[in-house]
């Protein structure tokens, strides 16, 4: 799990709470949330926020690897984490006072997520909004997503699922009864190009989308325009 954002307005109708779940079957070259691809919590680095290892350096002292720590510093600032040898113990992120190192992908229980979603029910009621599960792709952890969706429907909350559709059709059949709206991205119509850019072909995706449409499930298809990848005719 990466993040919950309240009051989003671009993914589905009205005012929504968006739950971003970690894990994505694709590996798009242009992905804006690369932290969300791997399904376990990791440390993220924001060098701009670092107040300087000389004044602070809490992360360096906290790192269990001691002298050979995995933090890459430059000009007195922590710039990156050397991820090849890194163990993701997250000690540095816990020590950082400035949020220059933070934990990406906090673990939540279904209940914690649903509780947060419930906080904004009045906003959904007034605006015709609800909850949106997004990612990564929420269907990578489909059982978890299903549990959230079920709980939300228990509370009569409008649910929207933003998915790559790169999953077994059976999963869709199990999840759909608890979904009010599906948003699907098509990255490229050509299977070959699709494989080139995203690492997987698009046959399964297109099949699932066609099936979804047949079920009369409300569906929004979005085509991200990535300059140099799919903006040619």
């Amino acid at each position: 799990m990466t993040n919950i954002q309240r009051f989003t307005v671009h993914d589905g109708p009205g005012i929504r709470t968006e739950v971003f779940l970690k894990g994505c079957p694709l590996n798009c070259k242009w992905c804006s949330n690369p932290e969300s691809i791997k399904p376990n919590p990791e440390a993220g680095v924001y060098p701009d926020r670092c107040i300087g290892v000389e004044k602070c350096g809490f992360c360096l002292s906290a790192c269990p690897a001691g002298e050979k720590n995995f933090l890459v510093t430059e000009n007195n600032r922590v710039m990156a984490i050397n991820r090849d040898s890194y163990t993701a113990c997250l000690s540095c992120a816990k020590a950082c006072p400035a949020n220059a190192l933070i934990t990406w992908g906090k673990m939540y229980t279904v209940q914690e997520i649903v509780d947060t979603v419930l906080e904004d029910v009045p906003f959904y009621v007034k605006s015709g909004g609800g909850v949106t599960l997004s990612g990564g792709d929420p269907l990578v952890q489909w059982k978890f997503s299903l549990a959230i969706l079920k709980e939300c429907k228990e509370h009569d909350i409008h649910t929207c699922l933003e998915t790559e559709q790169h999953v077994s059709p059976d999963i869709l059949n199990i999840v759909y009864p608890f979904v009010d709206l599906v948003i699907a991205d098509i990255k490229h119509m050509d299977p070959q190009k699709h494989r080139e850019y995203t690492g997987v072909g698009n046959e399964l995706i297109l099949h699932n989308i066609a099936e979804t449409a047949k079920k009369e499930m409300p569906l929004v298809i979005r085509i991200p325009v990535i300059p140099g990848h799919n903006d040619s005719r």
Binding site: V9, P13, G14, I15, P122, F123, K126, S127, G128, G129
Partner: peptide
């Protein structure tokens, strides 16, 4: 950018409505 269009307008109204209901 976040309150343009009819959707943006209605979200703004919804926000005020909730603030006022509370």
């Amino acid at each position: 950018s976040c309150i343009t269009g009819e959707t943006g307008r209605d979200n703004l109204i919804a926000l005020i409505d909730v603030y006022f209901d509370r």
